[in-house]
Design a protein around this nucleic acid. Sequence first.
DNA 1: TCTTAATCGAGACGGTACGTCAGGTCTTCAA
DNA 2: TTGAAGACCTGACGTACCGTCTCGATTAAGA
Lengths: 192, 192, 192, 192
Amino acid sequence: MTSAPNPQRRSEKSRQAILAAALALSGERGYGAVTVEAIASRAGVSKKTIYRWWPTKGAVILEALSDMAEAATPFPDTGDLPTDLHTQMAAVLDFLSSPVTGSAYAGLIAESQHDPGLAEALTAQLVGPRVAVAKQRLARAQQQGQLPADADLQLIVELLYGPVYYRHLLHLGPYSRDRLRELVDRVLDRWS
Amino acid sequence: MTSAPNPQRRSEKSRQAILAAALALSGERGYGAVTVEAIASRAGVSKKTIYRWWPTKGAVILEALSDMAEAATPFPDTGDLPTDLHTQMAAVLDFLSSPVTGSAYAGLIAESQHDPGLAEALTAQLVGPRVAVAKQRLARAQQQGQLPADADLQLIVELLYGPVYYRHLLHLGPYSRDRLRELVDRVLDRWS
Amino acid sequence: MTSAPNPQRRSEKSRQAILAAALALSGERGYGAVTVEAIASRAGVSKKTIYRWWPTKGAVILEALSDMAEAATPFPDTGDLPTDLHTQMAAVLDFLSSPVTGSAYAGLIAESQHDPGLAEALTAQLVGPRVAVAKQRLARAQQQGQLPADADLQLIVELLYGPVYYRHLLHLGPYSRDRLRELVDRVLDRWS
Amino acid sequence: MTSAPNPQRRSEKSRQAILAAALALSGERGYGAVTVEAIASRAGVSKKTIYRWWPTKGAVILEALSDMAEAATPFPDTGDLPTDLHTQMAAVLDFLSSPVTGSAYAGLIAESQHDPGLAEALTAQLVGPRVAVAKQRLARAQQQGQLPADADLQLIVELLYGPVYYRHLLHLGPYSRDRLRELVDRVLDRWS
DNA sequence: TCTTAATCGAGACGGTACGTCAGGTCTTCAA
DNA sequence: TTGAAGACCTGACGTACCGTCTCGATTAAGA
């Protein structure tokens, strides 16, 4: 997706400016305002430079979000499984609700509906890794006997994240911290 | 959304042609090919006629899907709660997976990310009603003692539909009928 | 041009309103604002009614101008040829320069460049009759010996009106009364 | 009118194609067929490119005609004033009557009736220069004593060109070469 | 240190679709 | 049976972005 013809001479300054401009536009004026031309103009960069390094404006947004997500809290392991899950999901919720990243992420999911390549990159770079660490945490809990050996980890993950994304993408409003805790407890209930 | 200034003399023939053309385009060439110009051309209708009755191509698609959904199976009540839920959710799943309605529905959710008016209409006309009948079925089960009196029906609904939408919108592949049954059983298990 | 399919039941009130609206629009907002829709709206009349009686907006304007021109001063005969010519030409000049009729007339000539039917009607109904009376006046002067028997009356008319239209249509500003008098004298001078 | 924001990198090939397409359309199917879309389509050019360099289709036609007119015969000076005038006016007449330029020029004058900017550009670029050289020729004749010192050159020009435009724009048919000669002789008669 | 080749900004280019406007035809309903 | 109202198809308008492309100017290698 973010293939680079020859990354040696790539201008890091331009790259930063482009990613920042894309996020800023999305945050300030909505994902609809994110346009290659608008990004170029705001970043003080030519369109050619963007197309040289990214195939799509979606790829730009994805890279911007990936950069941010990497910096965000990794999955904690305090020994208390429900609390750890709640901590991590709260981070995801903040990501979805933040004025900066929220519309960008929602727009990205939206755009991935018509762009298979973007869809793949999105799961590979943004969603997949986070799901993977969640599963790892659950597997560890399973090894420690906090979850039955035959617990279906994939289903647990879907029961946890599904409702969060569902509410967000259908504009039903985000979960409160308390409600999120309730969700986690209820899902783990019969497994723990 | 789909407000009509003066629907008295509206041409029903044109309306049908437009909705059919929109769905057909989406099914055959993807949501990206759904364009006001393309709809007009295929429906043998002028763009003006579309803009007269719908504010957005999204509103056209929404109306087309609403028309279809109304005709689809209503929520059954056989007395067997898990089976009834499974039946209804399978209908939703088919709606999401069908080559005809699938890309249209996904595209609609996508577009609603940048269009608040469309988002509202989407929940009001398409999602809301179906969630409402699901809740009614659950409430009836509750009255009959199949669910505890303090069960959180809203949470149940989200645990059921959340994963389905989640998998669909993040392109993780649809549930099989068996897997769907497992999901229903697992969720209800928590309140038995 | 202004043919009437069935003039029996034609509403004189509507006719007046339409002609007045057309002239008013042209005078107030320029010929470009003269639109069948605008005329209909301002005259409180349906488009159909206009199309029933006139083939073109140009025909409407033409009829409006013809009505006015008929009411204007006929060609005088005081015995003094240069003065009579000057009087008549001043009337034409006023017609061209008036805020009410000016842009309408210019627009009509303009439109006649792409509409042969309108062009024919324009000369037949508006220009032709006025040229004819001018020629009649010149012929009378010729009979009375004020012009040589072999004077080319057609050429005289063209030398008189040509410059007036030329200046007007090429936006060189209208003649002053004095300058107009000079023109008449100079032209007649050639045949004295 | 035909101002260029930054003409350095303007594509001369596109410019030529656009001007040629505009003239061809006007010649083949009349000025009414001259449409920005039709020009773009025939010239193999995007509409944006036309709008980038010209404000109006009229401006395109004007530039096309200016290019042609520049290439046409300059005002001759054989020493014989009437003949020189006749030569030059015959060129104008051909311009007006040619199937290629005729309808374009007439349409241009027509359009200038509702477009003040175009009107100005028309006189500045097309009409003005040609009138100026005519006046220069007359002034030279005046210095050589072929015309009286107090001859009104402006009026002479109007008496010469006025009738030509008058007949053309009111669709009275063009002058024959002989008739044109007659006109010139008659106008110069009392001044020479 | 100096070349030299890729990258940079700028923005013109051929396109597609947008949403609007006017033209001219046709249907419905009240008078 | 007319006329006001206005829906309808057509086609052009002028604009916004798309993704590609040439320009010089800059810049960071490798010679």
